[in-house]
Structures are given as C-alpha cells and as structure tokens.
Design a protein around this nucleic acid. Structure first.
Length: 356
DNA sequence: GTAATTTGACCTTC
DNA sequence: GAAGGTCAAATTAC
C-alpha cells in the first residue's frame, strides 16, 4: 500500500500521520486481543454491538483512512505485509519517517566502547518537543558534544533494555533555532510492557484530549481485563490536571473491584464494574492532595541540562523509577493504554455495552 | 546498598 | 583523522 502527500500537505507530515495511524492500529490490534469474541448465537441486529465488533469496525475505519492517504507515491513509502510503515528510498533527511528495517550491516560485537552509528540507516522517528517527557522511562547512557552545535546530544535507552530486552533508544538535543524545544530522535520500538512506560503518555494525551473536546475515552487493558474511562468526565470533574494520578490509582487497584454495570462506572472487559466515577474522582483528589502530579509519574526530565549533567531520565529523581511511578517491570501484569477520540462514539456506555 | 548519571575511552563510519 | 555512538568505571543520589 503506497502513501503520498496530497493537496499540498508536506510529504513528511503525511508520513508522520501515517506512522501515527500505524501506531493507533497496532494499539487497537493489541487491545482487540484482550476482548472476548462476539457471541455467535445472537443476531447482531437484536443486540447492541459488542466491544469486539466495535473494535473491528474501528479498525476497518482506520484502515480505510490509511488507504485514503495512499495514492501517487509522492512519499516514497509503503506499509509492508506486516503492516509497518517503511520508506522505500532511504533519505538523509531525518524527518523522513521510517519504521522497522534495522540496518542489515552485521557488525561484530566489540568488547567495550565504540559506536555503531545506530542513527544511520536505521529506523528512526524524529520530532520536536518542548519537553523531554514522553511517557517512557529512559536511562541515559551517554552524552556528546556535537560539531557545529552549541548543545550536547544526550543518548538514552529504555530502562527495560536489560530486564525485557527493549531496544528502544532516543537521542535528545536542544534545537539550535529554538532552545526552548528539543529535537528528539527515536530509534527502534518499545517492546517492553510496563505501565510506567505506557500509562503516563496515554493519560497525558487523554488530559490534552479532554481539554480539546468531549468524549475522549481512555481504554486500558491489563491481564485482568479492560478498563474504560472517559476523559471528558475527568475534565468535568475538574481532575484533568491530575489525570495521570488517576491512572496511578487505577493501576494500583487493578482488578480488585467488581459489581454491576452503570453509566458512571469504569468497566472491566469482563463486564464487571471497576470503579465508580465518584470513586475515581476521589482517588484523583487523594493523589492530588498528597502532591503526586503527572510530572512525578512521568519518566523524562522537565528540562535538559545543557552542561551535560542533571538531565535525569528517570522520573522522581534517579532512583528506581521515581516516586509515584509504577513498580518497575511487572512482567506478569502486562498493562497498556489506548487513548483518544473514538469516532462517533458518544459515551463510554455506547462503546462498551457489556452485559452484566 | 542499589540504581542512575557522568564522562573518558573505545569503536565504527565517513 | 574527525565525528558520532556506545560502553563501562567512577561518581552521585536516594
């Protein structure tokens, strides 16, 4: 499937959008695996659509949108059989988004030190951000002064490189043109499954989405089931600023409550009520009252030290992931998040009409 | 004591 | 040889 820029949209922006869509699709696919299959006996016309069916429909719409982006091939790229975006022509421009496709250049493993120049010819995704916060927990492993640049470049790898073999890395550097922003280049993808590396981003996104408009749903899934929340409700409750803390509370209570369904409940995939909105709001209020905010649950530092010291990558101050963060590497408690507006879904109740 | 960061050395690529 | 990327010992923080 080929993609191209249409209607004057810069090619790199189309490529970035395609990449975002690919990630959304991958997240949906992962979430879909947690859902029970649709009931076979009932006619779909006689009952509301189940979560799995709605997920499939959403996936279909997503694929349709991705197909719409396809065309004449102004962007040299395509989605391969595995569904990953790959640029056809390697570009020296780091803004050209690439996915997958590790360098084929096999290098012998050196004993110590040395550089493999992983940034060249490998999958990368460059972006500019005002903060280094991206919801993942990074460990800094190096810093270099860069030729013709007043700011050093910092090198990070995923905290879970050792315990889960996560190969994600990133490089950060202050923008020369705008030192208040950072150029962040990501290499590889996160294969780790740690709440502390997923939830903060999702919640931060949800908080932002909630401020943009109504009906942004938070769908979280753990080994124990799926949890759905509605960020607009959080916003209405005045808890948007500490939505990340809500996730902390949610995760800490994961799978511990049950009961019947209801419009103001947070659900689990099994159809059990997970938490009352009032309970959620109270939890958020509690966490807020003890001073835990999104910045402490996150992972990246608020600012990078130009001199090379102090740009801690782990939230909460350089030790064990930081206060307010999730325990490190609960591999048995896999947990993920999908966040964002879900089309015409007007309410969480419409989206997940679980039967009690 | 443990874990993260710093920083000089080492290695690869150009 | 220069530049950039990574390793790992030393240092620092909790």
């Amino acid at each position: 499937m080929a993609f191209s820029s249409e209607g004057g949209v810069p090619a790199e922006r189309v490529a970035a959008a395609v990449n975002d869509l690919v990630e959304v699709r991958d997240g949906l696919a992962r979430l879909r695996g947690f859902l029970p299959p649709p009931p076979q006996a009932e006619q779909s016309s006689s009952r509301p659509p189940c979560a799995a069916e709605l997920m499939d429909a959403t996936m279909s719409k997503l694929m349709s949108a991705m197909a719409t982006l396809g065309g004449s091939g102004d962007i040299a790229g395509e989605v391969d059989a595995a569904g990953r975006w790959t640029s056809v022509a390697e570009s020296a421009d780091p803004m050209v988004v690439r996915r997958e496709g590790e360098s084929s250049a096999g290098r012998t493993r050196r004993r110590r030190g040395g550089g493999s120049r992983s940034g060249r010819g490998r999958s990368s995704n460059k972006r500019v951000a005002a903060t280094l916060e991206d919801g993942h927990v990074w460990r800094k492993y190096g810093q270099k002064d860069i030729q013709n640049s007043p700011y050093p470049r910092s090198y990070y790898r995923c905290t879970h490189k050792l315990d889960q073999g996560c190969g994600a890395r990133r490089q950060t550097q202050r923008c020369e043109a705008d030192p208040s922003n950072y150029d962040i280049t990501y290499y590889g993808e996160h294969t780790c499954r740690d709440p502390s590396t997923i939830i903060p981003t999702a919640i931060a996104n949800a908080a932002g989405a909630a401020s943009d408009g109504p009906n942004h749903n938070i769908i979280s899934f753990a080994t124990g089931g799926v949890v759905v929340a509605n960020s607009s409700r959080l916003a209405r409750e005045g808890t948007t600023a500490t939505t990340t803390s809500a996730a902390t509370q949610l995760s800490s209570s994961w799978g511990t409550s049950g009961g019947g369904g209801g419009g103001d409940d947070v659900f689990s995939s099994s159809g059990e009520r997970f938490m009352q909105w009032d309970e959620l709001a109270a939890a958020v209020g509690h966490v807020s009252s003890v001073g835990v905010t999104s910045s402490t649950v996150g992972s990246a530092p608020a600012a990078e030290n130009d001199g090379g010291n102090g740009d801690t990558a782990a939230g909460g101050g350089g030790d064990g992931g930081g206060a307010g963060s999730f325990p490190s590497s609960p591999s048995a408690g896999s947990l993920g998040f999908v966040v964002g507006p879900l089309g015409s879904i007007e309410d969480v109740d419409d989206f997940f009409p679980f039967d009690p």
